[in-house]
């Protein structure tokens, strides 16, 4: 669904690289940073929205992140991709926000109430309901597991890319994902019958089972 951060498709690879834009920005080009923002804002929005589960919080976090990136562009070191660096700033802004507000884990009965609050329109699709359930379920996870699952399972980044963003070893990302999925399994497993995922997951299961 989403390409990993380091590998934009050939068709959309821009003439000017992110790194060149960032250099131009540091050298005083007033439009360079806008271009960077335009290129990456959707992805950053998706990461923040899924990590925080609240559009207002996500808007604040992404704004903080872009402003912060704007300010500390000079500290960017070329060994990381600009996208990885931006992701890191956004994820950290989200994690900071969660810590500062000490967003507490949500209890199970609150989940039901949250679902009621977000009452869908009568003929809204399965897809949207699933999206809301996923949002609510993610909020049950500790922030480190949530951030890992958002990057790897939702955004489709490789474990290695996620490890660079989160600045932890790959093994740590894997184990956070594993623990997160184990927590979500009882909550989300009923969705298997609501979507056409059944076939895929069974095939995956069988593949794992058979080694």
């Amino acid at each position: 669904m989403n390409s990993p951060p380091e590998t934009p498709s050939a068709a959309e690879r821009p003439a000017v690289t992110d790194a060149e834009l960032l250099t131009a920005h540091i050298n005083g080009d007033t439009h360079a940073f806008s271009e960077i923002v335009k290129r990456h804002r959707d992805r950053m929005w998706a990461v923040a929205l899924r990590t925080l589960g609240d559009p207002d919080e996500a808007a604040d976090a992404v704004q903080d992140a872009f402003v912060s990136a704007y300010r500390k562009a000079a500290t960017f070191r070329g060994e990381a991709a600009v996208t990885t660096w931006l992701h890191r700033i956004v994820v950290n802004a989200c994690l900071d926000r969660m810590r500062r507000k000490s967003v507490r884990p949500v209890a199970d009965d609150e989940l039901i109430e949250a679902a009621e609050r977000e009452t869908p329109l009568p003929d809204q699709t399965v897809e949207r309901e699933v999206s809301m359930e996923v949002s609510a379920a993610l909020k049950l996870l500790p922030s480190d597991q949530r951030a890992a699952l958002v990057l790897v399972d939702m955004m489709g980044y490789s474990v290695e890319d996620a490890a660079h963003v989160l600045q932890v070893p790959s093994g740590t990302v894997k184990s956070r994902c594993a623990r997160g999925r184990a927590k979500l399994a009882p909550i989300l497993s009923h969705l298997r019958n609501r979507t056409d995922l059944n076939r895929v997951s069974s095939a995956k299961g069988a593949e794992l089972r058979d080694g």
């Binding site: 669904m1 989403n2 804002r41 959707d42 950053m44 929005w45 998706a46 929205l49 899924r50 559009p55 992404v62 897809e127 699933v130 999206s131 996923v134 699952l149 399972d153 939702m154 955004m155 489709g156 999925r181 184990a182 979500l184 399994a185 009882p186 989300l188 497993s189 969705l191 298997r192 979507t195 995922l197 895929v200 997951s201 069974s202 995956k204 299961g205 794992l208 089972r209």
Partner: peptide, 20 residues
């Protein structure tokens, strides 16, 4: 195990909207 695979599939299938 299938439940765990479902989690991955559901997360991957959840749409990521563009920034408003």
């Amino acid at each position: 195990l299938a439940d765990l695979a479902t989690v991955r599939e559901v997360l991957a299938a959840t749409p990521t909207p563009a920034m408003p």
